[in-house]
Design a protein around this nucleic acid. Structure first.
Lengths: 198, 198
DNA sequence: AGCATAACTGAACTACCTGTTTGTTTCCAG
DNA sequence: CTGGAAACAAACAGGTAGTTCAGTTATGCT
């Protein structure tokens, strides 16, 4: 039951048309006609693949997240001493490769559900790591881990969005990941250039 | 040239109708009829106040931001030793008072522009504080201040959204602000309960 | 209290977009 | 080669957006 070549082509066209059009005009301003016209696909064909605009976007996003999950397999953040930052770097590399789609998602286009899904999955993943680390080190968290996970993901996404929207790219992915790792470990007081916590 | 009482009433009705309906069904699912019906206002009246749904939302958000800016006047984050966290607490208090509207904005409803505006204004404000502090302390930033500002605001908003969406409220505003301040100063490594940076 | 004015109302109208259906043509997989 | 699935063009009803306008209040001011 391998996929029909035609459906692959159609889906790819719809995906590309959606992403480029959202970047140009914003999701809300698009009509199904706009998308099918750019994708060079008949209206009826569109509706045989998805219910509506939002559904298309949701599927495209889900595919991307699955791809990301694949890349993240086996990449672990655990060492005896603390954070490696490897999963974060992997995320940034993936985002760089799929820049336009990431920009569209991180802008919160399309009723914001794609971004919410992305966020929630990331929070779940991060929270699991936090719990695990708490167990292995036996450390007592000084701040609610749920809050911590939200803060960490919020920081990641905000920075990633900023990084992807800049032209030209302010720094390579490695440096970005490293900056974020250092910031997370040492705090913003240190990052500002001050020595010793107040 | 005080405002006509009728316009005040109408605007307030539209605002309340919008917020409650977005919470119930999401911005994208709403029609102008839905809004005018709940607000008990004629269709034509709606269009005499704003171009469309998005315009209404934009105005409501702008009003809120102006109100917030008023509250933030005179509240400064500067001391010789570092962060006071007072502006953050003021934000949280305001958000608590206007909970529903904040939730709607932070969810990124309405083509995401209200949230983008909010974010950008906050980043500007925060970046100014960073620059100022760099001057007064003479410290050399170890991380790009622009990145730092994005990260800080992203963290704030993510946590604020989480806090507002919880029922019941996980902790009072003071504690939330304090948690975030400590996290910012000492870093996530410390927050996890570990001692000494790796 | 009375008046000029500005806000609100209700209804009608066009233009556009959605989502569905149908019969036909083209292309793929085995 | 051939059966079947996918893509196609065209047409349809239903609903929403945004505009217009004549007529009805309510408001602020003197």
């Amino acid at each position: 039951m391998a996929e029909d070549r035609r459906t692959r082509r159609t889906r790819r066209s719809l995906r590309d048309a959606l992403v480029s059009l959202v970047l140009e005009r914003g999701f809300a301003a698009l009509t199904v006609d706009d998308i099918t016209e750019r994708a060079d696909v008949a209206r009826a064909t569109f509706y045989s693949h998805c219910r509506d605009k939002d559904d298309l976007f949701t599927r495209v996003t889900a595919d991307l997240l699955q791809e990301l999950a694949g890349r993240l397999e086996g990449v672990t953040d655990e060492t005896a001493v603390g954070f490696t930052g490897k999963p974060l770097l992997e995320l940034f590399r993936h985002a760089e490769a799929e820049r336009d789609l990431y920009r569209v998602i991180l802008r919160g286009e399309g009723d914001g559900r794609p971004l919410s899904t992305f966020t929630d999955e990331s929070v779940t993943r991060v929270a699991a790591v936090f719990r695990e680390r708490a167990v292995t080190t036996g450390a007592e968290p000084r701040i609610d881990p749920e809050l911590l996970a939200r803060a960490w993901v919020g920081e990641q996404f905000a920075v990633l969005r900023w990084w992807l929207e800049q032209e030209p790219r302010p720094m390579p992915a490695e440096e970005l990941a490293d900056n974020l790792r250092m910031l997370a470990v040492h705090g913003r007081y240190w990052a500002s250039g001050l020595n010793g916590a107040p």
